[in-house]
């Protein structure tokens, strides 16, 4: 464990909590892509199947349970509790455009052709595109509430810190997880455009982020 990975995991946790609290306190999920949240729940489910077979550390196990619980709670709030505030017509990204290539690729490129390994690879590739429906919704509606942008900011920060973590681990322990690194770089690239908008629009106190 290194500071970059720990900070990254904390940012990830903060992002999930920001979103969950925003939905719970505003009792609304307007402007939030339910599809992205479903994809994240699938990412955690397919990645953390080793929860029962491999024990890494108390931290690892606890964080996996927390991420699973919070992501399912978020999906529950969107599709059950506050479903009347969910504008599904704006959440129109075709998930099959993501799932088909990701499933195909995880069968082609993986470390071992075993169910657990293929599901882990699937979760890595899926996570890199899971935010697309949310970013698509923002470009479609042309705006995002500032809380949603804070959520995206921390999510992007988590990915950037993970890249720093991989650089650190490569230089200190020669660790290099090719699938995770390639997928993580692709995922981080999606946030770069958003980071620019976040800094120029939201941090200038505009409250809402409106796209040009």
């Amino acid at each position: 464990m290194n500071i970059f990975r720990l900070a990254g995991d904390v940012c990830h946790l903060v992002a999930i909590i920001i979103l969950l609290l925003k939905i719970w306190r505003s009792r609304s999920c307007a402007g939030i892509s339910g599809k992205s949240q479903v994809l994240f729940a699938i990412v955690f489910t397919t990645r953390y199947l080793d929860l029962f077979t491999v024990f890494i550390s108390p931290y690892n196990t606890i964080m996996k349970v927390v991420f699973l619980a919070l992501s399912y709670a978020t999906v529950y709030l969107i599709y059950m509790r506050f479903r009347n505030t969910f504008n599904s017509e704006n959440d129109s990204f075709r998930l099959e455009f993501l799932l088909v290539p990701v499933i195909g690729l995880s069968f082609l490129e993986n470390y071992a052709f075993t169910p657990l390994e293929i599901l882990w690879t699937f979760s890595i590739f899926l996570e890199s595109v899971a935010i697309m429906p949310q970013l698509f919704m923002i470009t479609k509606t042309g705006e995002a509430e500032s809380i949603t942008t804070h959520y995206l900011f921390f999510l992007g920060l988590y990915r950037a810190l993970y890249i720093a973590n991989w650089v650190w681990r490569y230089h200190t322990e020669g660790f290099f997880d090719q699938i995770a690194v390639v997928s993580g770089v692709v995922q981080t690239i999606f946030y770069i455009d958003f980071f620019y908008l976040y800094v120029t629009k939201v941090l200038r106190g505009r409250g809402k982020m409106t796209l040009p």
Binding site: F67, Y111, D177
Partner: peptide
């Protein structure tokens, strides 16, 4: 191919 026996990252 850099096989990973166990994935220790979240």
């Amino acid at each position: 191919d850099g096989g990973e026996d166990e994935h220790d990252e979240l």
